[in-house]
Design a protein around this nucleic acid. Structure first.
Lengths: 153, 153
DNA sequence: ATAAGATATGATATACTGTATCATGGATGC
DNA sequence: GCATCCATGATACAGTATATCATATCTTAT
């Protein structure tokens, strides 16, 4: 498990390699996501930057920064939760085509997994038969994490 | 393909069978979803009821009605789109445990499909290994529909 | 070094989605 | 008729997100 600084360095190099700049504020937002195993909302990140760095980022800027980070494949948006997480493969050099997110419906913790290609191919076939075309096989799956399952009411 | 009135009659009987009432306004909202092969937002349904029936439903009421319809399994919420669709199995008598939605990322049209149990069980196993517990295997999958794929820019 | 242009960020307004809360209306049963 | 319950209305507000125009900062050419 790489520490946050290592990941950020990696991300910076990756940005530089095609002329994008990982500015300070972008690093701050990214680190807010790297620090957490839970997804965070844009406004939570505003709060995080204020507490952690004394920065008063306007929400607008955070949204723009999140867009940038998504374009750089450093961050994913979870539409199920309207929240954001850091990609868990920033320090990998190989590409990861098939990514799935397990989202705990209770505590919002997120785990990024990969599903075997056979299942994905089955899925793609089923979808094709239905007349649709699978765009990105990024699935977001509602789950309970281990902790929450055992604390269930 | 059953027409809308048939589906609504079916829904009404289903509600009655356990003491719930499918009121006029509830029927109006439901028909707004049945009329469309695309998902509609709560506010679009407000608009629909205004245009179609001259009803000026407050958004609050539409949300409550949507909650009711979801409880009755007549409507699904698509979290990826923050929109709602009519269940395509209202007139079926058997139950449909495992439902997936293909959502066209371009025109928002939606198709409800079923995925074979083997794939779902594989998925469940993978998730279990990751320490999570699959809640509802309702997946929402970003696709392009046939039309949009062929019009692509 | 400086001016011009590009990129990043700030400020402000506003739209969209959704919930909380209290009030009112209408059906149902006694 | 009255009490009760459920459906709906009215109002306020929270959270998520985008549009737009202004300002700051960084690059690059001259």
């Amino acid at each position: 498990m790489s520490n946050i600084q290592t990941v950020i360095n990696h991300a910076e190099i990756s940005c530089k390699s095609h002329g994008a700049k990982l500015t300070n504020k972008r690093k701050q937002v990214l680190s807010g996501l790297l620090q957490s195993d839970k997804a965070r909302s844009a406004y939570e990140l505003v709060e995080y930057c204020r507490e952690e760095f004394g920065e008063t980022l306007p929400a607008m800027s955070v949204y723009r920064i999140l867009d940038f980070l998504q374009d750089e494949s450093l961050v994913h948006k979870l539409k199920l939760a309207n929240k954001y997480i850091a990609c868990s493969h920033i320090t990998c050099d190989h590409s990861h085509g098939i990514v799935q997110f397990l989202i705990c419906g209770n505590c919002q913790s997120v785990k990024e997994i990969t599903v075997d290609k056979t299942s994905i191919n089955n899925l793609r076939d089923t979808i094709k038969k239905a007349g649709f075309h699978l765009l990105s096989p990024q699935l977001e799956i509602s789950c309970l994490c281990h902790n929450c399952k055992h604390q269930a009411v």
